[in-house]
Design a protein around this nucleic acid. Structure first.
Ligand SMILES: [Zn+2]
Ligand SMILES: [Zn+2]
Ligand SMILES: [Zn+2]
Ligand SMILES: [Zn+2]
Lengths: 131, 131
DNA sequence: TCTCCTGTGTAATGATATTACATTCATTGC
DNA sequence: GCAATGAATGTAATATCATTACACAGGAGA
């Protein structure tokens, strides 16, 4: 895993996501970077595209948001799973080898060639349940 | 499972989804029902909300679309999975007990209370690979 | 230098989803 | 029957998310 050489915009977008305590929408990222020169959604989306390619950022399909990878140095990213708290917005990123292999089995058995898998559990996190 | 008494709008939306050969976006449904009196997105979204409640329709988070349940009579809908072909748009709905239980395990171990789970594999289906 | 490729800036547009408010309709209790 | 209630509907406006189109800037290599 080579350290990617990020451009200025990519650095800023990744910085915004890393600084956040939860996932951000593209437009929220834009707002947070306005005083650093960002003006248009496309600047954010273009940077996100690359960061997604590099595996430094993940997209949460069910909430149209993006989150910095929790384990960017570990390349073991097969099909990831996310637990998303609907109360506080916190996200836990995890992966489960059994889940991955079961889904891979299904794909093989059905002649389906997977390209990208989304596993997202929405609910309430332990901290919010404890309140 | 009691047969739900669908309203006129709900019937029409479900009908449009059932007649389609793949998932439809809310606005596509709207277009297909314009000559049956539909005028505004909200008419579609309201019907979809109920149909989702009843389990007659599923939402595909990763493509912002909706699909009629493939097994509406079988109530075994725990956490479903979908394989979505990016070439032809066909969707296969399935469920895997092992996947479900592994995700339930993770949730229990982390004190996370799940409410809705999305498992969506995008890729290329057997038919499209065969071309 | 010329060309190619990547990244960037900007405006406009397209696509998806919700809020707000008024109205209609069936059900229930009197 | 008739008022009260709650569910469903109609419509407009707005909010949110994402892409297309086009012009320009800079670096790498022929
Ligand atoms: Zn990650
Ligand atoms: Zn929480
Ligand atoms: Zn189903
Ligand atoms: Zn296909």
């Amino acid at each position: 895993m080579t350290a990617h050489d990020l451009t200025k915009n990519q650095e800023m977008v990744l910085g915004a996501l890393s600084a956040a305590d939860g996932p951000l929408s593209a437009y929220t990222i834009l707002d947070r970077l306005r005083d650093r020169g960002f003006r248009a959604p496309l600047q954010v989306y273009r940077a996100l595209d690359k960061l997604l390619d590099y595996g430094l950022v993940h997209r949460l399909e069910s909430i149209n948001s993006f989150v910095a990878c929790a384990h960017p140095h570990c390349h073991a990213h097969g099909s990831l799973a996310f637990a998303i708290c609907e109360k506080c917005g916190q996200v836990e990123e995890f992966s489960d080898a059994t889940v991955q292999s079961r889904l891979a089995d299904w794909s093989r058995e059905h002649g389906f060639k997977p390209s990208k898998t989304a596993i997202e559990i929405r609910g309430t996190c332990a901290a919010c349940l404890a309140v």
